[in-house]
Write a protein that binds this DNA or RNA. Sequence first.
DNA 1: GCGAGTTAGTAACTCGTGTCACTCATACTA
DNA 2: TAGTATGAGTGACACGAGTTACTAACTCGC
Lengths: 359, 359
Amino acid sequence: MTGQKQVTSSDVAKLAGVSRTTVSFVLNNAPNAQIPEETRQRVLMAAQQLGYYPNAAARSLASQHTNNIGVLLCQSADRLFADVFLMEVLSGIHQVIRPKGYHILVEAVEDVTAPDAYIGLVRSRHIDGLMVSGPRADDTQLPRIHAERFPVVLLGRLPNSDLCQVDVDNVRGARAAVEHLLALGHRRIAFISNGPLVYTASRDRLRGYVAALTTAGVPHDESLVRYGNFSRASGYAAMQSLLELPERPTAVFVASDVVAFGALAALRDAGVHVPDEMAVIGFDDVPLADQVTPPLTSLHLPARELGQTAAEILLKLIAGEAITNRLVSLDTRLVIRESTGKPGTLQSQPDMAASQDTR
Amino acid sequence: MTGQKQVTSSDVAKLAGVSRTTVSFVLNNAPNAQIPEETRQRVLMAAQQLGYYPNAAARSLASQHTNNIGVLLCQSADRLFADVFLMEVLSGIHQVIRPKGYHILVEAVEDVTAPDAYIGLVRSRHIDGLMVSGPRADDTQLPRIHAERFPVVLLGRLPNSDLCQVDVDNVRGARAAVEHLLALGHRRIAFISNGPLVYTASRDRLRGYVAALTTAGVPHDESLVRYGNFSRASGYAAMQSLLELPERPTAVFVASDVVAFGALAALRDAGVHVPDEMAVIGFDDVPLADQVTPPLTSLHLPARELGQTAAEILLKLIAGEAITNRLVSLDTRLVIRESTGKPGTLQSQPDMAASQDTR
DNA sequence: GCGAGTTAGTAACTCGTGTCACTCATACTA
DNA sequence: TAGTATGAGTGACACGAGTTACTAACTCGC
């Protein structure tokens, strides 16, 4: 297609006056072969001069590895948020993987349950390892691939699986959120979930909420719990419903920033002042969480770090190393803004590794 | 690494009782070879039964194409926005490319000016074509790759280049924004750029602003122009400066939503009501443009369509087809929200293909 | 029954690199 | 001097598929 004749290792060998084998040894720093510095330099010069780049396909064919890792995106319901989140994750993966000479093959799949959704990627030896973002329990290919001992790391939780998994510690994050509200003096704290409880993340965030209350000796009032569905609208509705309660909560933990935006809108429309009449804390710390009125206190997801650690694990798996810790949980970071009260106005009681927003 | 023995076409041939050549012919639907249906079925069954997937490397080596296309991200200054935007673009590319059997190799590069930044991807025949997002004029590899007649499509503008380019029509978009304000009756309209004028996009948006005013016979007042730098803070400062003018504008076109968020904050802090005392219109229509107070009227960037058209062009280039239109401009779409006034309250004068926000 | 034309299928070469096993000097040892 | 290391480098095969040029068998017309 390009019309350009490819420079091969034979050309380099010819120019350097050595055999092709020697060229290969020099360029790959073969540990066994002894090559005198003088020859080495001659080969390197020749390669440089000709602008030689080894053919990737030939190299893969011979060496049995591609230096590609696959990133499979099974986009979940919260698209909007997933977008920006995933780009950060990708960036983290890239950061770790590039210095080792790997490339990223991105694959999005609409229907993971299709029998041929992505197994071809693995079987055709397109990639050396696979990263699955948003794994699903009804994915039948994952077990098969795992059974073939193909390196796989999941970004997200998949219960009852012994695959390597990297995820955010949703329970601890939710706990931290509620503890922050408790530390500010709130006792009547409501909860709006990010999504339905079929999602592990939603379940875990609810669990963290309950746990924090229990630990603090605050009774868990079921009537203060509402469910969102990842959308702004669901947050609006949930908050409206909470406002109709005979005894209003003084604070609400919304397990998703986007849903929290809806809640904020509902509060504004109802003329309820945030944070004086109602403190609001979100989750995810989406990029524009500090742009709304009032700027939203939230829990920052370590997206880049998720990508990095997952990539490190995957590289180990590819190298055949043993993984000691198959379930990694990364901590969220509490970012305090104005929606929970101006810092310092109330009792400021540093409960966790909380950081002021410095964007 | 995986320990699993790969199924080869020889295995399939053996099982089907034919030669390897026949297997290849059947599986690739070779147009020349005549294969009776009965044999065809036998081969297909055998392949199916063994779970045969052709080895990608071997296939690439023999056929001289990889079925991979590279997407190079040269992240620009407006990172925050780029993230979500790029994911949309990727999605569009994927949509077009996947059905044709192509995969996406994502590569981010921090320093494009490095002599070896990404040319290896091309030279090593890792990919069949390249898409460059955010191309830069000081990129020295691009001309070299182009000279080798390697298929390349740019996402963005690169003046003085005969490479294929797909971009948003920033001039027309800006024009539409200002025309909307004019149609609402505004005459004193300020401008805040998204970034410094070294960026083509910034220059074009300014040009569109001036063009719209000129066409409408409104004199262009230089004192109403301010420059942002992609950040919220720059928008805040720019708007403050505009508010200090002896004769305030009644509307402002901010050539970036993020910068516009800053402007909105400045207006709120100054107690200026939007849109009654000051109409504000943004550009980009970032996902949370409808989440701020008041929801921001903006121009929607067709991110997915950008990816799609770029992908279509790249596929044509790879196939060796001639490209008639090397400079494609996609139109933005005016999304009217509350920051320019409730629709219908003033004279509603449909100026362009404006659509109500239906998110 | 014979050449021409078609059908069905294959042997053998190619793609470019990695790597094992082996050679040929030269240097060192006893 | 014979024998053995060691250093420097190569020949040849493997990797798995695409593809060209060819053959063998079979059909048809006369």
